[in-house]
Design a protein around this nucleic acid. Structure first.
Lengths: 358, 358
DNA sequence: CTGAAAGCGCTTACAG
DNA sequence: CTGAAAGCGCTTACAG
């Protein structure tokens, strides 16, 4: 099957490629130039005859034409892709936020790539390079770690926004998060008001500035009130739950054991919970666990977990807002959005749910 | 700043674009043609002088060059993107699977787009069209709904694999899942062996063939044994948890209420659990709840939930295997991989976790 | 072992 | 109001 003439067909032609129409397809059917179709598509200047617009639009609709992104972004040097990089993909709270970002992006026809860095600086850099090769318009970080690549990208002005966990480098970077320090003091305040007497804390990874700030706020307020805080340890690999379990093990061996424990994320508290039940301790009757994030599942399966609720549904729109700022007035101060938080004390009085339809 | 000569520069030139090297950058620095660089990059035929290879490779490494995906896929009419479409992004079990797929794709330099269809046929079709405009190499469906677009894409031979929930259309389509019917009978078998006497079931959405099959297997086996099964209702929108809650409400109003309830997914069981606790019923002492999937969080926060465990870590590699089959021998029967399942009965004897390092 | 050239699908000055 | 043409970065026959 040798064919050797000049105007070669496309190089590969997979079976289903025939199905994907191009600008040319539309232009031929409509009897106009591809320029015109492109302009209709983008609502561009150089106004086009209403009749033409309508005809072209109908055609586009009919064949389900969508411009090939590769052609478009090759030309414009810009894509409609944003990337969400995380070191902790199993975190359900992150999933919820990722979902909210994805939804918010929908309105602007953006698409979201999800990538796992495994919390490894080298992999993170690899991912960053990869994302650039896709001309991603923006990168969302959840749990970034310090790395040379991160530094370089930050300096190059690649639009990046950190969610919840601030940039791990000593650089002012765009952020959507909560006032971690303040939230920590709020939890301390609550503990003090309940007069729990003995206190402990279970921490996330060393590199997490969010975890650090929550802890500092908590500890500072406790110290002010003259209370000591026992530290269970640090997250040292494995899952957060495992880590919470191990740190709880350490804490609960103390004499006396802490009556109330602040965990800097719900996942840690889940692990601690298991240890408590193993020891026959009831939560919160014997040991109070206080988490952070309010994982969406809590209200169903963790009625024993008090926590700091952060509005995960708001992250999507806020991240979007930051990106828009970044895309338009580049050069201004890095935008930071601090979302409100509040304490959720459980068990709470729960009203039975009633069917709202039917 | 009017410039009008022929060899125009790139159309837009964002500030950070300078940072992204191209084939030309490398070729100039190396003093070879872009053809050669491209060949080194792809390990292509027409063997290249080892010295050249090395020089080029060093350069690539140095500047952190990665080929622009838009250029590449415009030329090859193929991308390295796979898409995961779901109607249920908040499902932690799905997140776990998505993570496993993403990891598996890593090895082959693929990237994963995550998109939410909201279970709406129209949105699903919109997403499908959009994914085609990105030339996605494959689409993974979790909870697809019947739609004209789905049908069309299936017929056009776009590589798609359904995970857990089979294709909702009467078409044989690639699948990675479990033997749902059999799993349903297994649960029934267990219930019977425990002699729980009164039985109920809480179901997912009508369109879910997976949920349906689990139910049928369960009901058939129960019927064989002469037991009746009370149906709580159907998922009719809202979250799965809410739905489980409402169906449990209905079931538990019966006289006598079911002693054991099979929920076709863990999320439904979570909702049911809340209703049980509201009514002061203990799980599993008063009401046995049996779920499906074994959400990774269960072992930490739901020691009361027995469930059918499906090996979510195996999904990534299996999905990949199916895609590879689809990409190579197109035309053969749609590959289907049935992963093994087993019952997890909780509360189980749990050995305390010990630190494996340090 | 290496390179010049064509062309994938798009957008956008430029010229009518 | 409309179109011809250039060029984004890549891969791949084809020709040395």
């Amino acid at each position: 099957m040798q064919r050797g003439r000049k105007p070669t067909k496309s190089p590969k032609e997979p079976d289903h490629a025939s199905a994907a129409p191009s600008l040319r397809t539309i232009s031929q059917h409509a009897g106009v130039s591809i320029t015109t179709v492109s302009r209709v598509l983008n609502g561009r200047p150089g106004r086009i005859a209403p009749a033409t617009v309508e005809r072209v639009q109908r055609l586009i609709e009919e064949v389900g034409y969508r411009p090939h992104q590769s052609g478009r972004s090759l030309r414009t040097r810009e894509s409609s892709i944003i990337a969400a990089l995380t070191s902790d993909p199993s975190n359900a709270y992150f999933s919820a936020i990722a979902g909210s970002i994805e939804s918010a992006g929908r309105n602007d026809n953006h698409v979201m790539i999800l990538a796992n860095t495994m919390g490894d600086p080298q992999r993170q850099d690899e991912r960053l390079l990869e994302m650039r090769s896709y001309l991603t318009r923006g990168i969302v970080h959840f749990g970034a770690v310090p790395s040379p690549g991160l530094q370089r990208f930050l300096e190059q002005g690649v639009p990046m926004v950190f969610i919840i966990r601030p940039c791990p480098l000593p650089i002012e970077a765009p952020l959507v998060g909560v006032d971690d320090y303040r939230a920590g003091t709020d939890v301390a305040e609550h503990f003090i008001s309940q007069d729990y007497r003995t206190y402990g804390v279970i921490l996330g990874i060393e590199a997490s500035r969010a975890s650090e700030r929550r802890y500092l706020g908590f500890r500072d307020r406790m110290k002010d009130a003259g209370h000591e805080v026992a530290v269970g340890g640090r997250h040292i690999g494995g899952s957060m739950m495992e880590s919470g379990y191990l740190q709880a093990t350490t804490l609960l061996e103390r004499k006396p054991p802490p009556r109330a424990i602040f965990c800097t994320t719900d996942m840690l508290a889940y692990g601690a919970f298991r240890r408590c039940t193993e020891l026959g301790l009831r939560v919160p009757e014997d040991v109070v666990l206080f988490g952070f994030d309010d994982n969406p599942l809590n209200e169903w399966v963790a009625p024993w977990l008090s926590t700091v609720r952060t509005p995960y549904e708001s992250f999507g729109p806020s991240v979007w807002e930051v990106f828009n700022t970044l895309w338009t007035d580049r050069g201004s101060d890095p935008p930071q959005i601090i979302l409100p938080h509040h304490l959720v004390i459980r068990p709470e009085d729960r009203a039975p749910i009633t069917r709202h339809d039917a």
